[in-house]
Every structure is written in structure tokens, then in C-alpha cells.
Simulated assay, not measured.
Amino acid sequence: MSQTIALVDDDRNLLTGISIALEREGYKVQTYIDGESALNGLTRNPPDLAVIDIKMPRMDGEELLKKLRKKMTIPIIFLTSKDDEVDELLGLKLGADDFVKKSGGFSMKVLIERIRVQLRKKNDVIEETKSIITHGKLKLDPSQLECEWGGKALPDKLTTTEFLIVKELAKRPGVIKERAHLMDIAYKENTEIEDRTIDSHVKRIRKKFKKVDDKFSAIETRYGSGYRWNVR
């Protein structure tokens, strides 16, 4: 069954070019020229992955991402054209799973490969283990990418990347996982990701858990090395 990719960009020429390339690769494509129409369309017909431009009329990519994250956990790749935006995205503070630069020569090949990596990563989470993972208050369901803490589902669902990080930390409580290792788990072939990206993800993960438990402290920072899941 063909996977569906949603494209959101106000550049119609770019939309057409990317659509043709993805359809040649066997994907189904949904296209939207602004954030508002994308939010309505993606809510009605969720795709397997979305590629979103940051700067758009009516609703920009940042606002669209925030609204989508409250509704779904699909992988999201940002398209960005400015270096200062790239700096922000490297931290992935907004919850995007990856980014592709439009400045300096846009590469369709790079975009398609990033899409493949994100879709493969999502499938790997589901196929690696379909059994429920539990540790103390934590409950992970890889088949649905669902996470519970103390019997309560997180109101803001973990993204695929965040789910992978939590799963990797929790499967061996007390063991320190270096940032480089977590980056490899979360991003595989993407060598442009920096160390601070993992820190941004962990910060977002903690915020999501604290919405159901304001005393959440299961993820411990080991300064100079990485993180570990508390055994307490």
C-alpha cells in the first residue's frame, strides 16, 4: 500500500516539482499552499508524513506544527530557507523530526532520502517490538506509539523521535546513554544533527511527562556525558 506524503508550501512551482518526484517514487501526495488549509486537510485525512515550509501566509509552519502536534504524531520535516532558521531547527525546539534546507541549492535527492529515513524509523519502532514495554510508572505501546505515565496517557503525544529516545533510555534503567548514541538511535543517517538537538528533545519530553506528573524526574542528566533513566 502506497504511503501518503503531505506537502505544505506557498511556492506552487516547488510543490509541483516535489509532487512529481515523490509520485515517481511511488508515494501518494497531498498538497496545500498555506498552513490553514493544510491543518483542515491533514486533520481530515492524516498522511504518513508531512513536509512543511516555515514561512507561509495565513498560518506559518511553526504555528501549523504546534496545532498538528496536538492532533497527531506523524513525522514532520521542515523546509527552511534561512540560516538563522536552520540554527533554530537544529535544536528542533518546535518538535519537528528533521529539516531540509532550501537555501544554497535545494536537493530533491536529499529530501526524498530524509523522507525515507523518517518513514523507516517509524516502521522500525512498530516492528522491532509489538509488545507493551513497562517500567515502573512508564508504559510504552510501540504498535500505536502511545505512552502512559502512572496510568495516564500523555496529553501531548510523543513524536516518533521522542518515543525512540524514551524507549532507548527506559529499556536499560540506570545505564548512561551518551548523546552520540541517542543521536544515532533517533537520526540514523543524518550527520548534520548536533548534540544540542538531543538536549532540546529531552527538554520537550520532560515537559510532556510533567503535564501528568509535575514531579516527573525519571530522565536524569549526566553532565558531560548524556542521560539515563532513573531506577528509583
Score class of each variant (00 low, 15 high):
residue 60 D to A: 01
residue 212 V to K: 01
residue 179 R to S: 06
residue 51 V to A: 01
residue 102 K to Q: 04
residue 223 Y to Q: 14
residue 151 G to R: 00
residue 124 D to K: 10
residue 38 A to M: 11
residue 108 M to G: 12
residue 191 T to F: 05
residue 4 T to V: 14
residue 231 V to T: 12
residue 85 E to G: 02
residue 57 P to R: 00
residue 130 K to F: 11
residue 53 D to G: 03
residue 95 G to K: 01
residue 103 S to P: 00
residue 74 I to E: 08
residue 17 G to H: 01
residue 152 K to E: 05
residue 182 L to N: 05
residue 187 Y to R: 01
residue 93 K to R: 05
residue 215 K to M: 15
residue 27 Y to F: 15
residue 198 I to C: 01
residue 154 L to R: 00
residue 18 I to W: 02
residue 173 P to R: 03
residue 136 G to L: 01
residue 43 T to W: 04
residue 11 D to S: 04
residue 81 S to G: 12
residue 118 Q to G: 09
residue 159 T to D: 07
residue 54 I to D: 07
residue 16 T to L: 11
residue 56 M to N: 04
residue 94 L to G: 06
residue 26 G to L: 11
residue 192 E to W: 06
residue 156 D to G: 05
residue 72 M to T: 14
residue 103 S to M: 03
residue 228 R to K: 15
residue 222 R to I: 14
residue 94 L to V: 07
residue 24 R to S: 13
residue 109 K to I: 11
residue 159 T to N: 02
residue 71 K to H: 14
residue 72 M to W: 10
residue 202 V to T: 09
residue 24 R to E: 13
residue 32 Y to R: 02
residue 144 Q to T: 04
residue 93 K to T: 01
residue 126 I to P: 03
residue 215 K to Q: 15
residue 52 I to E: 05
residue 232 R to Y: 13
residue 78 F to D: 11
residue 87 D to E: 13
residue 204 R to F: 04
residue 28 K to Q: 14
residue 226 G to S: 04
residue 26 G to S: 08
